[in-house]
């Protein structure tokens, strides 16, 4: 084939195996389509966001350089701090609770061979694949004043507890958070059950011979054996928690008052509603940094001891 000869001509004189290491102009072409888009619509916008964060800007008129003032405002304004605090509360609901639930299940199930595992897995994973808007619509109904939760409370004679859960100052944030717990608990269960099955059964036998009870067995064998899975679960769910925009937008829109405002909502509002673009950019830089730091420390913290 003539094209082959043509390509061969361009090759360096070493053998065919060796010249794979030599960079060739043709090889760049393979990267061009993806990288062009990646650079234009990911890397460049990110650089721009970082740049905007040093300006006061309404998105239309001239930008005014203000150095680190946006960041200063971010870390001193009580409302902003509360909003980032809500982000951390979301981590409890989206990440820590689901992981604990998953671990509890595994602790109970390690000695048991699970029947119908495939079906359980399919069902438990379902919340992960539903669009967040759909999830929000479903939960709005569940939390509604005439919804199932209040109906059950009435039935149990606890009618005094009934309320519009998403509209109540005392319960709104936790109610939004529990939606996240619901989205992620199945993922953690599936991950940990899968991981527990890969743990060498001899380790359990050895632990039992040493006289370990169920709790010691869990702490000494199961928990260390699941380190990788816990790390994956935390990375997925913590990122989810901090990027929780869709659920808030479609359930409470941040209300009542500022009860359920989260960082991504702050960014959206600043950028597109109140037109404080520089401040919103600074907030997204901080949010991004937070995600990076947390995922990196999860990865490192859970890997080191091996």
């Amino acid at each position: 084939m003539s094209t082959v000869d043509h390509l061969n001509d361009e090759r360096a004189p070493e053998g065919p195996a060796e010249n794979r290491r030599v960079p060739r102009a043709g090889h760049f072409l393979y990267l061009v389509p993806g990288f062009l888009l990646y650079a234009a619509f990911c890397l460049w916008p990110i650089a721009q966001t970082a740049y905007f964060s040093f300006f006061r800007w309404d998105g239309i008129t001239d930008m005014r350089w203000i150095g680190l003032r946006n960041y200063l405002e971010l870390f001193t304004d009580p409302l902003t701090l509360t909003i980032f605090g809500h982000g951390l509360v979301m981590i409890v609901f989206y990440a820590i609770l689901p992981v604990l639930i998953g671990l509890l299940i595994v602790a109970i199930m390690t000695r048991v061979r699970i029947r119908l595992l495939a079906i359980f897995r399919t069902v438990l994973f379902l919340p992960q694949i539903l669009a967040t808007v759909v999830v929000a619509v479903a939960w709005r109904w569940i939390y509604a004043y005439d919804g199932p939760i209040n109906a059950v409370l009435e039935l149990l004679g606890m009618g005094f507890l009934t309320r519009a859960w998403l509209g109540d100052f005392d319960t709104a944030l936790a109610s939004v958070g529990l939606i996240g717990t619901w989205i992620n608990f199945g993922l953690c269960m599936v991950l940990f059950i899968g991981g527990a099955q890969k743990i060498d059964t001899q380790l359990y036998e050895a632990a039992r011979l040493d006289g370990a009870g169920p709790v010691q067995e869990f702490l000494a064998v199961t928990l260390p054996g699941l380190r990788g899975e816990i790390s994956i679960a935390l990375i997925l769910t913590v990122t989810n928690a901090l990027r929780n925009f869709d659920i808030v937008w479609n359930t409470t829109a941040g209300g009542p008052g500022t009860e359920t405002l989260v960082p991504s909502y702050l960014i959206y509002e600043g950028a597109f509603i109140t037109r404080n673009v520089g401040f919103a950019a600074a907030a997204s830089v901080v949010l991004t940094a937070l995600i990076l730091v947390l995922t990196a420390s999860i990865t490192i913290g859970l890997r080191r001891r091996y």
Binding site: P45, F52, P263, S264, I267, A271, S284, L287, T288, T295
Partner: peptide
């Protein structure tokens, strides 16, 4: 370079994309 895009939230690029 690709790692950067792996962990970044869309919040980090939404403003310039809009512009």
């Amino acid at each position: 370079l690709l790692m950067i895009g792996l962990v970044l939230p869309s919040e980090a690029r939404i403003i310039p994309l809009y512009n």
